[in-house]
Structures are given as C-alpha cells and as structure tokens.
C-alpha cells in the first residue's frame, strides 16, 4: 500500500541498504576479517554508529526533543528480556559466523546481485516464522 509512511520507510531502507554496502558489511570476506580480528573496519562502523546513537539518545532525553509524528518526546524503547534471549543469541551468533550474513545485509546482498544470499534470506524467513511460533508458545506456557 502506498502512503506517506511507507514511502518514508522505503527511503529509510534504501539509505540503510546503501550504507551497509558502503560499510563493507555486505562482503562475507570483510565479515570474516572482523570475526578473525584481521581487519577491524566493521568494528569502527558499529562502534561509531552505537556511540553517536547513544549521544543523540542522551541529547534527545536531556532536552526533551519531540518526535514529529506524535508531538511527544522521542521514546526510548527498551526491548524486553525474552525467555529465549540467550539461546536465540547463541543460534544467531552461530548462523552469523557460519554465513557472514545477518538479516539486514542478506537483503542488501540480494540487491547487489550476490545470489547466494537468496538462500540465506529464504532460511531467515522460515527461521523467523518458526521463531515467532516458539515465542508465542513460550509466552503462553
């Protein structure tokens, strides 16, 4: 459906995919160099993104910056401690190390014509569906 919100998110996604590519995050070789501590360029990308993000979050909180859509102070959303958090994070780390791909970069790689990422993307899609189902069961049980 085409509306302003979706067009805005299309622009956000496009910019994010472009930046992931220019960062080198869409190259399995560069991911392996990060994990094997051979070239830390991606560590600097992540560290800068987190540090500047934290500084902006602090400024927004300190000076009560408001979100344009709600007119309320920009929210600081803390994700909950899910029951499967540790197990999930371990599985994620295994998959990430095994493929050199994460959910965001899989999509950017498909756009770049790195076709092996279609397999990874298909796996992520099925895995996400299964994970949602397990989360649902864990929350009920």
């Amino acid at each position: 459906m085409i509306n302003r919100r979706n067009l805005l998110f299309l622009a956000f996604g496009t910019t994010f995919g472009f930046l992931l590519s220019r960062a080198g995050a869409t190259s399995p070789a560069i991911i392996s160099e990060l994990l094997l501590f051979e070239d830390l360029r991606l560590l600097w990308v992540i560290a800068t993104a987190v540090a500047l993000g934290a500084a902006l979050t602090w400024l927004a909180w300190r000076f009560g910056w408001r979100a344009l859509n709600t007119g309320e102070p920009i929210s600081i959303q803390h994700k909950p401690f899910k029951r499967g958090l540790i197990v999930g994070a371990v599985l994620f780390g295994l998959g990430w190390a095994g493929t050199g791909v994460c959910p965001g970069t899989a999509l950017a790689m498909i756009g770049e014509g790195k076709w092996f990422a279609l397999w990874v993307g298909a796996g992520i899609l099925v895995g996400s569906g299964a994970g949602s189902w397990i989360n649902h069961r864990l929350e009920r049980g």
Partner: peptide, 14 residues
C-alpha cells in the same frame, strides 16, 4: 541452514 539459525535466533532473542 545458516539462514534458519539466523532467523530463529533473532526471533528468540527479540
């Protein structure tokens, strides 16, 4: 299989 681990792990971890 790598993708499955990533998707499943990300959902469990939130």
């Amino acid at each position: 299989v790598g993708g499955l681990l990533i998707g499943l792990g990300a959902r469990l971890a939130g």
